[in-house]
Amino acid sequence: MIELEDVSHSYGGGELLSGISLKLEPGSFHFLTGPSGAGKSTLLKLCYAELTPSRGRVRLFGAELGGMDRDAVARTRRRIGVVHQDCQFLDHLPLSENISLPLLAAGRDVAAEAGNLKELMAWVGLEAQAGSLPPQLSGGERQRAALARAVIMAPDVILADEPTGNVDWEMSLRILQLLIELNRMGKAILVATHDLNLIRAAKAHVAARVLRIKGRQLLLAGADL
């Protein structure tokens, strides 16, 4: 579904990632770890075409990123759910409208999908917060809402950038559980995190591959993870 082949990315004259190859298949679960500033977020951005590689090839659902126009990139992003650490909500819209934003952007009838939206909000435990504005929510609620927005289009791939970065351990496990449920539905999951305890907790429930960015290269993590 998403394939990076010998990809490098340069920023500000220096190479941040070098010779990265990665393939996300249906039903796969990957963790991406490494120290802060190693390039985890950059690698995720390459996966959903917010960044383009300075070298190498990125294929999204069989199509070369280099040959895609802006509309094609937009349509492809509807098949990729992204959860950011800072959630990226529109603060002037109630939570329910933020979560249904991908439907609106795709030209779908939001009113007709009100039932699905309600079900989704119940799944992430935010039914009562539907009318709240994003700044009124706690960190954990915002992360779960971001996850709900990421999956509302029933994407094939979920990319999560430090989804538990701002929440306590109990909430981290709850978000992890939601990601595992999505993976069991056949979604490909890629989670960038520096939380090794979260990775260990996940490996107790799912066959996850752990990748580490070290020295601009992508390596398979050791057996300790």
Partner: peptide, 16 residues
Amino acid sequence: ARVIEVLRLVGARDTF
């Protein structure tokens, strides 16, 4: 700009 970034992120086309 932030609104536009969020909309692009969730798959909105430029025309939308």
